[in-house]
Design a protein around this nucleic acid. Structure first.
Lengths: 182, 182
DNA sequence: ACCTGAACACCGTTCAAGT
DNA sequence: ACCTGAACACCGTTCAAGT
């Protein structure tokens, strides 16, 4: 079975899901594929490039956003499927600005709300989601390591509260507001 | 000069400021202090504990928040003084929940706005700030490495836009709203 | 073209031994 | 009590050499 870029990304994706960012090393990817570590560098320039590719996989099958609150919920759901993914996506967003999955189309949704600042509005919501889920996943890792007890609290309610507030605040200014929620 | 916990944290803080998270290693901290790496472990349990202490330093001299928007601006300003600090603070928040600096007092500010959900409201704002600044700092690191060109765009305006929207959305529900901004 | 073997310059952490 | 020296089990990346 030939070593390909796709197989390397698959192995990286699986490793991230199962072991988190600490378990996603070039050497382990190589081991998983039964090749020497150096072999990876024939198909991938460096670890950063692999991480970018894996981040793409995580957001690949996000449904096209129809409404901001649903989009935020879907984004969180996709992130929670893979350990440490919020941190990774934040990192990759820094050099692939907003070209990730259906998150890319979020400004289109906000265009109807406020055509002037659709990009800023979408980024505001996304930054909240990433900040929220990053902390959520960091805590989950600490619980897994036995450093923190599982307090059994579901963060979903706090998340929904934040999303509702932000989407409400992103509506056009109070002066000419029409159908705030729907 | 005796090796103390405080001197170790100082060295870690300096290293983070100057070299970022990648430059903050136990071995470099030891080198900076002229001791063997193992010596650190007599004063600090592990790297994680050192990171938590450094995060405390970063937020130590935040002014007490009087108003949400000012608090968000101050938090961003404090974070931007130290490379990679948003990621670090997010990590530390996961196991020292909201015990960091004056950020701790933010719920008090929101209590006047909506006593019911002061904690969630404060966290919503903080998660946005951390998500925003994390991406901002990740981008800055990539520019420093020459991987990304400096596009010269000031993120301050986008940040202010997001903060304004979120704080507006965090007001009590539209039905009984009084003096939304002041 | 594609991969191996071996190396280089690093990591965090532990621990016997010294003082 | 406090620190050194040396080791252990790792990293990402490079590169001559093989096929």
């Amino acid at each position: 079975m030939a070593l390909t870029r796709a197989r390397i990304v698959d192995a990286g994706h699986a490793l991230l899901r199962e072991q988190g960012l600490a378990g996603l090393t070039m050497r382990r990817v190589a081991q998983e594929l039964g090749v020497a570590p150096g072999a990876l560098y024939y198909h991938v320039a460096n670890k950063q490039e692999l991480l970018a590719e894996v981040a793409g996989r995580i957001l690949a099958d996000l449904p096209a956003p129809a409404e901001p609150r649903a989009a935020a919920q879907e984004l969180r759901k996709a992130l929670l499927r893979v350990r440490d993914s919020a941190e990774l996506v934040s990192f990759v967003r820094a050099f692939r600005p907003a070209a990730l999955g259906a998150e890319r189309d979020l400004p289109l949704v906000f265009r109807e709300l406020r055509a002037d600042r659709a990009r800023w509005a979408a980024d505001t919501l996304v930054h909240f989601v990433l900040g929220f889920v990053a902390e959520e996943q960091n805590r989950a890792e600490l619980v897994r390591l036995g450093i923190l007890p599982d307090d059994g609290v579901d963060p979903g309610a706090a998340f929904g509260y934040g999303v509702d507030a932000i989407v409400a605040g992103l509506q056009p200014p109070p002066a000419r507001r029409r159908e705030a929620s729907r």
